[in-house]
């Protein structure tokens, strides 16, 4: 897992609860790096799962809620850092369909070892689209948070229905409707 996910995760926690919580979280986990992450490095996913689990325990917030919130944080960071990917579009669907075939391809060029989820799309018109999420890391809630804030970013009034296609959450269908 890319280092940016860890650094942004700690950033979000520090912003919300202060460095003390971050320090406490690091101390409570048995992390492979002793809590030292750089955005250009690559680290085991298990570190992230442990951090999320421990934070959920300590903050009495569920893991899905935690991941959904982290999706929102991440999207915000992306819009800051990678402005150009977003500014070419005016409709969220137009951006979303570039995700798998365009943005992820560029990501792979920069980080050949990046492990990215894959998306399949079925766009009926400008008002409804179905996206299928597939990833062994089963972090569809993170994707949900990202999607939610993406639609918000393009000023759509919308609703998202989430449905597990595979029980364990490795394949998930998002039904997006724009009013």
């Amino acid at each position: 897992m890319k280092g940016i996910v860890f650094t942004e995760f700690f950033e979000m926690v520090e912003e919300a609860h202060g460095y003390e919580t971050v320090d406490k979280l690091i101390a409570s986990c048995n992390l492979s790096t002793d809590g030292i992450y750089t955005s250009v490095g690559t680290y085991p996913s298990s570190d992230m799962f442990e951090l999320v689990q421990k934070l959920s325990d300590q903050s009495s917030t569920s893991i899905p809620d935690l991941l959904f919130a982290f999706g929102g944080h991440l999207f915000h960071t992306f819009t800051q850092k990678y402005q150009s990917f977003f500014q070419d579009h005016t409709h969220a669907f137009d951006f979303l369909v570039t995700l798998h075939d365009h943005i992820h391809v560029e990501v792979k060029k920069l980080y050949p070892d990046a492990e990215l989820p894959s998306f399949a799309y079925q766009r009926t018109d400008n008002h409804s689209m179905e996206m299928t999420y597939s990833s062994e890391r089963k972090m569809s809630d993170l994707a949900h948070g990202l999607l939610h804030h993406c639609l918000g970013y393009y000023d759509h009034r919308f609703s998202i229905e989430k449905e597990n296609i595979v029980e364990d959450g490795s394949v998930v269908l998002f039904k997006i409707s724009i009013v």
Partner: peptide, 24 residues
């Protein structure tokens, strides 16, 4: 102490990043 730990972590992270960048 907290700040110290933070600083230590940041420093270590910077060094790591430098390592990685140097390698790159």
């Amino acid at each position: 102490k907290l700040l110290e730990r933070k600083f230590q972590r940041e420093k270590a992270a910077r060094k790591k990043a430098e390592e990685i960048l140097e390698k790159k």
